[in-house]
Every structure is written in structure tokens, then in C-alpha cells.
Design a protein around this nucleic acid. Structure first.
Lengths: 174, 174
DNA sequence: TCCAGATGTTTTAAGTCTAAAATGTTTAGG
DNA sequence: CCTAAACATTTTAGACTTAAAACATCTGGA
């Protein structure tokens, strides 16, 4: 995809003298990326503020508990790390503090002694459910100006964006 | 906006007995938020990896230099903090390290001794320009599957999202 | 002039995060 | 059975991040 493509005459002139390495214009994609980043940063900050104000909890802790709430049988640290897209060492520390505060239960797998399985304690689940209910209303508030159609369209375009980005990651890793 | 609105009969029944506090369903907005977050995290991680591999620089440093590149006359720390949407203390530390490495110049304002004005040094600008050129091609690669129309549409919807979120922030702060 | 509030920055304490090295465990091939 | 490679987790060192308190300076009235 190319916006603001150079005119044909310029193309031709250039092609005659050197390998085709024109500095293409990707300003629109760059602006899109900055806007995406701005939106996420803005919303993330707002959620962070409200979680702190209302429940005195950090966003990473909330996110980790959200993952575990969806997995009644628990998850391994690796699973959590992949799902949250953060490093392994990061998860170790987060879990440590949440076990300490009584929100998480951690045990070594019966079948593989390398593996740590973590799950929400009764306290952890109860507290998370309370937070999650309110969290959902915050999200509705934050996205309140979007119509149903906007939401559908954004979902579709972000799915496409995610796929595109994943392919780029894959290409680099080859 | 409301998806899966409760039926009128339920509404009526409930309204008779207590204040209208039905647990509305905002699952779609929640999914949208998670997808937005996933996209940003994925792309941010990819950019971070490439910056480290290729230039041995961190993303926050790159971002700070990007702000300064657009301001030849320099910026105050407060300006930077607002633009980057990070805390003041954060900027102090970042700037410290970039001054140390010779990429930034920092001086107290002539007219207001509270204010620190920072700008890119010659070295800083040269290095940033090199990184920025490559960075732009990475972004083009990452968003490569999107058509021109997709980009336009995403820009529009994210602008609307940003506006909506800003209003929510405003409401909370009142 | 004086000074109370506003503004700009730094400091502090604690938490989050990463990449890379180290540790412990399992698995597969010979 | 042995062992090299793969895998899961933790540790390490350093950077980034925040909120809140502390500090410095400026500004606009009384």
C-alpha cells in the first residue's frame, strides 16, 4: 500500500539511475500508529486511575486476576505470560505479591515438577468479581460515544491489524 | 449505546421494585478494549525489539527524542510530560540519562528559573533521524495488510474513540 | 511589599518490566 | 540407561513507571 506515490516521471527517472529504493511515504501509517497508541495510553491511564482510587489495586494485578478468573482450574506461569504478553520474570514477581496478599494460590504441578499452577483463592475471586463488574461499566462509559456499528467496525479493523502485525513479527523471527 | 438490552417486561418488573440498576451487558465494548490493548501491546513489543536489536535504544528514549525532533526550539519538561502522557518524575529520569549520553541538551529558562528547556544535541538529532527513517519502514511493514481505506477508517474511528475517552476522563475529574 | 496559591521540577518509595543468565526438570534419541 | 536439548521458572541488573511529597519559583491580589 502506498499513499502519495511519486509521479510516474519521477519513478522513471529514478529507476534509470539506481536500484529502486525510493523513500516511500508512510506518514499515514505512522499517524495511525500514534493515534492507536494515544487511545490505548489514554484509556489505560484512566482505568489505572479508577482501579487505584476505587479499589487500591494496580492494573497488572487486575489483569492477572482477570486471566485467572477465566480459568477455574488454574494456569501455569507460562500460560499467563503468553496471554498477558509480558516476560516470564515479570509474572513471577506479580504472582509473588498476589500470593502474599492472599489473592492467589500457587502449587507445583503433580505431573511436572517444573510447572507452577496458580489460581484465584476464594478471596481473590470475590474481590475480582466486584472489581470486574465496575470495570465493565467504566469501559462502557469510556466507549460510550461509539455506536454499535462503530464497535463492530473497529473490532473488524483491529482484528485485521492484529493479523498484519503478527505476520510482521513472524517475518522478523525467521 | 446498549447491546442485548433487557426485554421491556423485565425492565418493568424491575423498575417497580427498585431503582433502575439493571446489570447491562457491555461485553462487546469490553472485547473491543481488549482487542485494542492487544494490538497496541503487540506492536509496541515489536517496535521495542527492533529498536533494541538494531540501535540498542529503548522505546521511551526513542519516543522522547521524537517529541524533541518536532520542536527545534526545545520543550519544557512539562510539555514533554503532557505530550508523552507520562508522569513528571518519569521525564526527569529519562532526560537525565539522555543528557548523560550526550543526546540531549538541558538548560534553565532565562525567563523562568523553574523551567528546564531541553533539546536534541547535534548527535541526538543525527541518531534520531537515522532511527526514525527505519522506524517508519517498520510501521509500514506492521500495518502492511491494511488498505488505504482501512487506514482512513481506523483513523476516523480511533479519533472518535479518543474523543469519547477524553470526555469520560473529564467527567470523572469533575 | 508581602504572601498565599499556582506552577515546574525533583525526590522518594514501591511496583512493573525487560533481556539474559542461571537453575531445575523433563524428554527423546542413541 | 544416558545425556543433550528442550522447557518452565527464577534470578539478576538495570531501566521505566507512578503517585505523592518536597522543593523552588513565580504571580496576583491585599
Amino acid at each position: 500500500m502506498r499513499l502519495n506515490a511519486p509521479s510516474d516521471s519521477v519513478m522513471t527517472l529514478d529507476s534509470e539511475t539506481k536500484a529502486v529504493e525510493l523513500p516511500e511515504d508512510h506518514a499515514d501509517e505512522l499517524r495511525l500508529w500514534l493515534r492507536l497508541l494515544t487511545c490505548t495510553t489514554l484509556i489505560e491511564g484512566e482505568i489505572r486511575s479508577r482501579l487505584r482510587e476505587r479499589f487500591d489495586v494496580t492494573l497488572p494485578r487486575f489483569d492477572l486476576m482477570a486471566q485467572l478468573d477465566k480459568a477455574p482450574d488454574g494456569m501455569t506461569l507460562s500460560d499467563v505470560s503468553k496471554r498477558m504478553m509480558v516476560s516470564n520474570g515479570n509474572v513471577t514477581g506479580l504472582v509473588e505479591r498476589l500470593v502474599e496478599s492472599g489473592h492467589l494460590d500457587r502449587r507445583t504441578s503433580d505431573t511436572d515438577r517444573r510447572v507452577q499452577v496458580i489460581r484465584l483463592t476464594k478471596l481473590g475471586r470475590a474481590e475480582f468479581r466486584k472489581m470486574a463488574a465496575e470495570h465493565e461499566t467504566w469501559i462502557a462509559d469510556i466507549f460510550g460515544d461509539l455506536t454499535e456499528k462503530d464497535v463492530r467496525e473497529l473490532m473488524r479493523l483491529l482484528a485485521k491489524t492484529k493479523g498484519s502485525a503478527q505476520k510482521a513479527v513472524q517475518r522478523r523471527q525467521d
